[in-house]
Design a protein around this nucleic acid. Structure first.
Length: 591
RNA sequence: CGGGAAGUGGCUCAGCCUGGUAGAGCACCUGCUUCGGGAGCAGGGGGUCGCAGGUUCAAAUCCUGUCUUCCCGACCA
């Protein structure tokens, strides 16, 4: 038997060659969508019998779902191995000490699942594995001669998300492929980073995902450079700004844009206060004083608490703050809007009448779009009053300028003449140049060629496995169900015995099933005592790329019917194994 | 953490306002018919109405608390 097994991509997991008959397969499909499912990947993965929810943000993979996950993992593993990464398997349960060393036991806050062992020792469930991998590197790597190393694992991560949502897209327990590179110097890191970037491109391509590679905000990970792999879908939670003309693409957490220059006359008139009773929003003020205070001539004054310290943040009235940028600019770890009473204590007025003119006790961070602007209107820090004729440089001398504005669709690209587009997207991968942040904290050093002890230069590279599955469904489905990319489909071919009680039908379906298995395909045989309609519906839901329908009607004419899930293309094929095999091969290889 | 909604059989929901001891469709079991796009008829099994208190002669229904789930926001390597 093994001798007859062609070495095809599809037969890379020989143990899956086992009998896959739907009469015994546990694939509980649902006619109706569960009431709590909103996004289509959630709806179809549940309806198709791939997953079931156990608790908020915690899902069980059923046999179909697990097959898909293993397909994705297989692709990831192959591409990691191909660039010389070595697979590990680290514990999910960590002692506190290892997280104390980097300070992240505190930093991770309530997002980390924590528990105590029987001896009362603090433990946690790993959110990520920088600490553990670096710990091993610290203990074991001594010399630059042992570098570079690239280590990875495919492992469960736990994060106590404040708000799990969208099925498997935002969960509290999930699988991640996380890889870490260890080099003596920046140049080595650049090489490792580039190798991972290329491997990621191949992974997402092989999984049938169109992705955008975008510049990203490094956040709590730190590091000098990071890029995210984004899949465009409304189910995503990120926004990506991109320019068609030059290819610039960035998460709006870091994206910059070019604004049309605004006129800035010399400041002539002194600022003066004017009454604005009950005008508490930019819009209300602009509507009441259309010439004096259109939104773009107003200064929006926000009060933020950055690591316990109040800051004023100023933006043009019609611009929005990007908190991630504020975080980067201030270097703050915890950033939040101030509460109303904190604001009143500091400025003596409520939101709606706030401004920075005359404020010297608080740091004032001003968005670059306001640099050099004159004839502006802002709050007077007295309820019901605003100030006009404000010149930013003259009247707010303590201003520190920085880009903290969220870019908007339609604004000019900062690199070329194009216009920016803003898309919703789902993050499926993120690669970081970490540098020495973790190696320094954990004293992971090696001796370089000159005998100097230097911290290892690290990179970190993550992929969300379940997110790839869900993203594929978001990108590839129709009203009837999933349309799997053939590389990660639970089966390539779904053979339906429409009337399993009919001897000719049953015999042909069995022959095709076994024959296609022998040809190296993964095949699901629907041999259930169900009506044809039920089988068609389930086949559409489960979403195998090719459906082979064997029915009594066709058998009378000596044919079976092949349908391509992707575009519904139907062909009749002579009811014999070689014909069907040829047709299946051509359909699958076309892509 | 702030705001909103919902918990009634495996699933989707009605009943609640106006208290009187639980219903439909789907699914499941039996039989007959049907048999290429989620079949029809007949019969049948299955629910302490999320949980805990309270009001009442009587609570799915009214009141209080609590838990869970979903949505929006905040937050988020």
């Amino acid at each position: 038997m093994p001798a007859r097994l062609p070495r095809r991509a599809f037969s890379s997991s020989p143990n899956w060659r086992g009998l896959m008959r739907q009469s015994t397969l546990f694939a509980p499909t649902l006619k109706e969508a569960p009431s709590d499912a909103v996004v289509s990947s959630h709806v179809f993965l549940v309806r198709g019998g791939f997953i079931r929810q156990i608790a908020a943000g915690i899902y069980a993979m059923l046999p179909l779902g697990w097959r898909v996950i293993r397909k994705v993992e297989g692709i990831v593993r192959q591409e990691m191995d191909a660039v010389g990464a070595q697979e590990f398997h680290l514990p999910a349960l960590h002692p506190r000490e290892i997280w104390d060393a980097t300070g992240r036991w505190e930093v991770m806050g309530p997002n980390m699942f924590r528990l105590k062992d029987r001896g009362g020792r603090d433990m946690c469930l790993g959110m990520t594995h920088e600490e553990v991998f670096t710990h091993i590197a610290r203990n074991e790597l001594r010399s630059y001669r042992e570098l570079p190393q690239v280590w990875y694992q495919i492992q469960t991560k736990f994060r106590d998300e404040p708000r799990p949502k969208s099925g498997v897209l935002r969960v509290r327990e999930f699988t991640m492929k996380d890889a870490y590179s260890f080099d003596v110097d920046r140049e080595g890191l650049d090489v490792a980073y580039e190798a991972q970037r290329k491997a990621y491109c191949r992974i997402f391509e092989r999984c049938g995902l169109d992705y955008h590679l975008v510049q990203a905000h490094s956040g709590a990970m730190g590091g000098s450079e990071s890029a995210e792999f984004m899949v465009q879908t409304d189910a995503g939670e990120d926004e990506v700004a991109s320019c068609h003309s030059c290819g610039y693409a960035a998460n709006t957490e870091t994206a910059v844009s070019r604004l049309e220059p605004t006129e800035s006359s010399e400041p002539k008139v002194e600022p003066s206060r004017f009454p604005t009773p009950n005008l508490n929003t930019i819009e209300e003020l602009a509507a009441a004083h259309p010439e004096k205070a259109p939104a773009h001539r107003q200064i929006k004054t926000l009060v933020y608490v950055v690591d316990e310290k109040l800051h004023l943040v100023l933006l043009q009235g019609d611009h929005e703050l990007c908190e991630a940028k504020l975080e980067s600019v201030t270097g703050g770890v915890e950033v939040r809007p101030a509460h109303r009473d904190e604001i009143r204590d500091a400025l003596g007025a409520d939101p709606g009448s706030l401004g920075a003119v005359g404020v010297s006790s608080l740091p004032v961070l001003v968005d670059s779009a306001l640099e050099g602007r004159t004839e502006m209107v802002t709050g007077a820090n007295v309820d019901g009053f605003h100030i006009e004729h404000v010149s930013v440089s003259r009247d707010i001398p303590s201003a520190k300028f920085a880009d903290v504005r969220l870019v908007k669709a339609g604004e000019g690209c900062a690199r070329c003449d194009g216009k920016l587009e803003v898309l919703r997207a789902l993050e499926v991968g993120h690669i970081f140049k970490l540098g020495t942040r973790y190696s320094q904290a954990l004293q992971a050093t090696v001796l370089d060629a000159k005998g100097n002890e230097v911290p290892i230069v690290m990179g970190s590279y993550g992929i969300g496995i379940e997110r790839i599955m869900a993203a594929a469904v978001e990108r590839h489905h129709d009203d009837n169900g999933i349309i799997w990319p053939q590389t990660i489909a639970p089966f390539q071919v779904h053979v339906l015995a429409l009337q399993p009680g009919d001897d000719a039908v049953r015999a042909m379906a069995e022959e095709l099933y076994l024959g296609l298995l022998d040809a190296g395909y993964e095949v699901l045989l629907d041999d259930r005592e169900e009506r044809a309609g039920v089988k068609f519906k389930d086949a559409d839901l489960i979403g195998a790329p090719i459906r082979v329908a064997v029915g009594a009607r066709g058998m009378k004419n000596g044919i079976v019917e092949l349908k391509r899930r992707r575009d519904g293309e139907l062909v009749s094929v002579a009811a014999d194994l070689p014909s069907v095999r040829t047709e299946v091969a051509s359909k699958l290889d076309e892509r």
